[in-house]
């Protein structure tokens, strides 16, 4: 019995210790004197890897999500004779919830796991230790550009996701099912508020970008230096990042609907 309690305590201490380490790690990455000229090329490389290469999956999935929402929404709204409200339905659900959350989940799967695996392999093959040997700060050279690249890329991807999903539903609703385009847009514009809906969605995506890349980079940097360790760290990144995104989304929504 006492052993069990002791185990529980040890687990608790370990968990909080890990959270503390990751927090300190984050602080060390963020709070440093910016060296713009030297990091900019690295940052651009990483935005290419993290953001531009994720563009294809984000665009395709957002197009289909918009089209599915259009079809489903049309069939339900048809019962009430309210099909012109389709634009409002799609735009609100995409800008408020689906856009930020789904993009963050896709991003965690596509870019977060790749970041973890890459940094983990560097750690395993002792590239990071050798950088330290050469007096190159790995936090500078490896972590810093990757972190900021993820932080910058996710909001951009989210905004692109939103607009393409709206046009996807436009394609289905207006071009195929015959809703009047004027009503589609005007109902949407009457109900979507730039500050409340779109900006809050973007704020959510900024928070998600921060959390997802933080988890990915941390898991990579503190990988167990074995082949199995990399696999485990990659899995952890995707699982933790997804859970964090969904949990945070609830909290952020609660704040935002509370008139924050």
């Amino acid at each position: 019995m006492i052993n069990r309690i002791q185990q529980l305590g040890a687990m608790g201490i370990q968990t909080f210790g890990r959270i503390g380490i990751s927090g300190l790690f984050l602080l060390r990455v963020i709070f440093r004197w910016p060296r713009v000229i030297r990091t900019l090329p690295l940052l651009i490389d990483q935005i290419y890897v993290v953001g531009v290469l994720s563009l294809v999956i984000v665009v395709i999935s957002s197009l289909f999500i918009g089209m599915v929402l259009g079809l489903q929404g049309y069939n339900i709204l048809e019962k009430f004779g309210a099909t012109p409200q389709l634009g409002q339905l799609v735009a609100l659900s995409v800008t408020r919830e689906l856009g930020p959350v789904l993009t963050a989940l896709l991003f965690a799967g596509r870019a977060g796991s790749a970041l973890t695996a890459e940094i983990g392999l560097m750690q395993t093959t002792e590239q990071i230790s050798s950088m330290e040997m050469m007096a190159v700060d790995p936090l500078w050279r490896v972590i810093y550009p990757r972190f900021w690249a993820g932080f910058i890329s996710l909001p951009i991807l989210t905004v692109i996701f939103m607009i393409i999903a709206v046009y996807g539903s436009y394609l289905v609703g207006v071009d195929w099912l015959g809703i009047d385009p004027g009503q589609f847009w005007s109902n949407m514009q009457a109900s979507v508020n730039f500050r409340i809906d779109i900006l809050n969605g973007v704020i959510k995506s900024i928070v998600f970008g921060f959390v997802v890349t933080w988890i990915a980079v941390y898991q990579g940097f503190y990988t167990k230096p074995t082949a199995e360790g990399i696999g485990r760290a990659t899995t952890k990144t995707v699982v933790y990042a997804s859970l964090a995104v969904l949990g945070l989304d609830f909290m952020l929504t609660a704040f935002m609907l509370g008139g924050w």
Binding site: V52, A91, T95, S153, L157, I160, M162, I163, V192
Partner: peptide, 26 residues
Amino acid sequence: IEFLVGVFIILGVAALFLLSLRVSGL
């Protein structure tokens, strides 16, 4: 790479612009 990143950022700004004017009717 630099070109593609530039295009990426322009796409993001354009999407935000479209969202503000087309979707929300700012």
